[in-house]
Write a protein that binds this DNA or RNA. Structure first.
Lengths: 334, 334
DNA sequence: CTGAAAGCGCTAACAG
DNA sequence: CTGTTAGCGCTTTCAG
């Protein structure tokens, strides 16, 4: 067995509560006693058992992070921001991959709750039924979501200004003289991606010189981007610019575009969203909309930490972070 | 407060120990009693408190994963394999990013130990001093490492056959007729990368038609790959093939190669290592050595789980997984 | 098959 | 400033 508070108390000739105080409070312990206890504790290599502490305090100093898949570079970046912030607040972060599957999401939430985490960070509750969402809202710990629209104001949320980002992409393409535009995106009703689409559509539609843009829904992945782009190009050879809902899909698009015999940007301009690290590694380097992924994770954890604990204010907070156009070389004027 | 085992006991008119048995044992409870207790428990939406359970059983059903940075797609994939396996074994996975920093690594280990995790998965202990490594080996829970060489046989480990992978890359390039070869890699004494370099060097040196290959050490990142390749190309315009220690560095290399006015593979062949998802998204699609990242994470957790618990056999296990050449379009014969 | 009781390691009143 | 005493919610002997 490992050394416990009792051992330290016995070895240093004081009561365990004195040791406990010494460990937690700043005050209430005689400096001399404190010195002594500290010495004994470190000689014994005493490490307080955090689970025992958690049992009595009701706080576990653990946060849950439920993403669809950590292999998605967007979530990896968010996770890093979240973990750094959690660590700074003295918390652990437990990682869960839900594949955006309702059943798994619920399972994870229950598992985390059973472990009495102090808060939960989820990327989306859009796949949950109305009833399940109501259920979640009753959750005894704070939850923060990584998208805006679907939150129904029951949960805190932090996300990029996706709508603005969509418009930014549209206006950039418009300014370059493009008129027949395409947009490939993920499944319908995906909070963040839908917002991007909305922003894009609004901006394009507002320009009377443009026909309605072509938008195709599909799988949010490299392969999805690839297939959607093939379909779009096959059916609409006249399109001169393409907006991909995120960089991963843009990567798939690049592949499909090259295979169709077109060049980027000479024959077709391409713009992505996210600004993942490898966007600049692409050939040509991908023009994209930057969103502050690391900061999103960080902000989410900060919101959680502020709401953790029995008597914290639980009123939801909604934070929207700015996006930014990153001009590289995958777009040119017509 | 949430509903506890006491509430269930009271509501169903039995003793808490009966409820506890019902929850854990298969036998020893009268079927009728059991039915009744189950009914009450689910009516009350009872969820056993896992931290309380952990306190008495000594097992937390939690595993720690310490990687250098989850944003590295290799680790993201490992993490996913690990998390899936952990979940299958009923465990949580807590994520830690060490940046390969000795101090952080130690901190994380202590933090995880204080939380009484059942096992720890670390990518490497190479940055730790000899003494720190000895210390770690005394750890009360099993540790599995993600590299072979540095483990000093004190820890279990699972990794790809990096040496074989290095040779595979070399022989492939040799077979294509290349003779003046370059290799860009991470810092010296990085277990896995060093093994790749060794395998590569051995194979090239064995071929008498080849001059000794040029190997450059630098930062293990996109930027590192970029800078190293610039330097290599500047100093040695005659090189016809390049082996990058991993795909991320290969991505950086691509950028530098294009900027130097060379084409891939016409002017320079390039081969990577890892086979990350985006390797096929590159232009041209990257030829690389595949290593089973997901399976590495999965295997590591299985080793841990088998060694968790007080009386498990802790004798270290060393698993080496096979690698495979993935031929795409970034290499051609001279 | 079920109940009573002890205790995991720690914190938190409450006395002193 | 320090000791005593209850528990936190659960498992686990030990009786019955």
């Amino acid at each position: 067995m490992s050394v416990t508070i009792k051992d330290v108390a016995r070895e240093s000739g004081v009561n365990i509560s004195t040791v406990s105080r010494e460990l937690n409070d700043e005050y209430g312990v005689h400096p001399e006693t404190r010195e002594h206890v500290i010495a004994v504790a470190s000689r014994l290599k005493y490490r307080p058992n955090r689970v025992a502490r958690g049992l009595v305090t009701g706080r576990s100093n653990t946060l849950g992070l439920i993403v669809s898949d950590i292999r998605n570079p967007f979530f990896a970046e968010v996770a890093r921001g979240a973990e750094d912030a959690a660590r700074a607040a003295g918390c652990d972060l437990v990682l869960c991959n839900s594949d955006l599957n309702a059943h798994k999401q619920i399972e994870y939430v229950h598992s985390l709750l059973a472990k009495h985490v102090d808060g939960i960070l989820m990327n989306s509750v859009a796949v949950l039924s109305r009833a399940q969402q109501e259920d979640l809202a009753q959750c005894p710990v704070p939850i923060v979501l990584l998208n805006g629209a679907t939150s129904r104001r029951n949960f805190s949320s932090v996300c990029a200004n996706n709508t603005a980002g969509g418009s930014l992409a549209a206006n950039y393409l418009l300014k370059l003289g493009h008129r027949v535009l395409g947009h490939i995106t993920g499944p319908r009703r995906n909070g963040n991606l839908s917002d991007r689409a909305r922003g894009f559509l609004t901006a394009v539609t507002a320009d009377e010189r443009c026909p309605p843009p072509l938008v195709l829904n599909g799988e949010n992945s490299f392969l999805g981007g690839y297939e959607l782009t093939q379909r779009l190009l096959d059916g609409n050879p006249g399109v001169t610019a393409l907006f991909a809902a995120n960089d991963i899909m843009a990567f798939g698009a690049v592949r499909a575009i090259y295979e169709s015999g077109r060049r980027i940007p000479q024959d077709l301009s391409l713009i992505g969203f996210d600004n993942v690290e490898l966007a600049s590694a692409l050939h040509p380097p991908l023009t994209t909309i930057h969103q502050p992924k690391y900061e999103i994770g960080k902000a989410a954890v900060e919101i959680l930490v502020a709401r953790a604990g029995k008597h914290a204010d639980r009123s939801p907070e909604f934070r929207v972070l700015d996006v930014e156009l990153i001009e590289r070389q995958s777009c040119q004027s017509v």
